[in-house]
């Protein structure tokens, strides 16, 4: 395995959850991921500060992979791959 190499991915789908609060971003994320195939990647935009821990917990508990989490100008961006 190559250390420090950033996971390469293609975003298949985007979910705009900006302006929504718990539990809506996660409920919408769940719904979107359900319609995706294993290995597909979704990009989630959110403004709820609680989404950081919520998205992490959701990925951990549902067996999906959080590839990236970042924040810029109050907008959180998450890159999630369906499955491990």
């Amino acid at each position: 395995m190559m250390k420090g190499m950033v996971d390469e991915y293609v975003v298949n789908r985007t979910l705009d959850a900006r302006g929504l609060f718990c539990p809506m971003p996660i409920v919408k994320l769940k719904k979107a991921v359900k319609e995706m195939a294993d290995g597909e990647v979704i990009k989630v935009l959110a403004t709820d500060p609680g989404s950081k821990r919520d998205v992490e917990a959701w990925c951990r508990k549902t067996g999906n992979s959080l590839l990236e989490a970042s924040e810029a100008d109050g907008v959180f961006t998450y890159i999630i791959r369906k499955g491990g």
Binding site: P23, I26, V27, K30, K61, T62
Partner: peptide
């Protein structure tokens, strides 16, 4: 309802 909907998102 918030707990229930969050739980359902976790397949609980």
């Amino acid at each position: 309802f918030m707990l229930a909907s969050s739980a359902s998102a976790l397949d609980v």
